[in-house]
Amino acid sequence: MSELILPTPMRIKPHGSDTIRDVATLRDASEILIDWPQAKRGPFYQAAREKVEAALETQR
C-alpha cells in the first residue's frame, strides 16, 4: 500500500493543545482525528473521520 499524499499539506493545532501538527497524508489526518478530544467531537468531526477512513479503505 502506498501512502496517499495530500495535494496541500496542512498544519493543525488541535483545540486545547499547544502542539502544531503537520498533516501531509491521509494517515496523518487519521491519527489526528483518533487523538481528537472526545468532548470536541461533533458532526463536523464525524464527517471528517468518515471521509478519511473511507479514503484509507480505498488505498488497501
Rank of each mutant, 00 (worst) to 15 (best):
G16Y: 02
V23L: 04
I20K: 08
G42R: 14
M1Q: 08
D35R: 12
P14M: 03
E53Y: 08
R41P: 02
A54E: 15
P43Y: 06
T25R: 01
S30R: 13
R60P: 08
T19H: 07
G42P: 01
E3Y: 02
Q59K: 11
R11Q: 13
D22L: 10
D35M: 08
Y45K: 09
A29I: 02
T25S: 15
A47I: 03
E53A: 12
P37G: 04
S17E: 12
K13M: 11
R11M: 07
S17I: 03
Q38W: 07
A47W: 03
I34T: 13
L4S: 05
E31P: 00
M10H: 07
T8L: 09
R49A: 14
Q46N: 14
H15A: 10
E53N: 14
P37S: 04
P14H: 04
E3S: 14
K51G: 09
D18L: 10
R41D: 03
Q59I: 11
K51N: 15
P9N: 04
A48L: 15
I32V: 15
R21N: 04
L26I: 04
V23S: 02
A54W: 07
S30C: 07
T58H: 11
A55M: 15
E3D: 10
E3M: 10
E57N: 10
A24Q: 12
L33R: 01
A47C: 07
E31D: 14
E57W: 09
Y45R: 08
I5E: 11
P9Q: 05
V23K: 00
V23F: 02
K51H: 12
R21I: 14
L6C: 06
R21H: 10
A48F: 08
W36P: 00
Q46I: 06
A54V: 05
G16T: 02
A29N: 02
K51A: 15
E3T: 14
W36V: 03
V52T: 11
S17T: 08
L6Q: 05
L56K: 09
P7A: 07
Q38S: 10
I32C: 05
R11S: 11
R60G: 11
P7K: 02
G42T: 04
A54S: 14
I12A: 07
D18M: 05
A29R: 00
T8G: 00
R41S: 03
Q38E: 13
P7L: 07
W36H: 06
L26T: 02
A24F: 01
A54Q: 14
E31W: 00
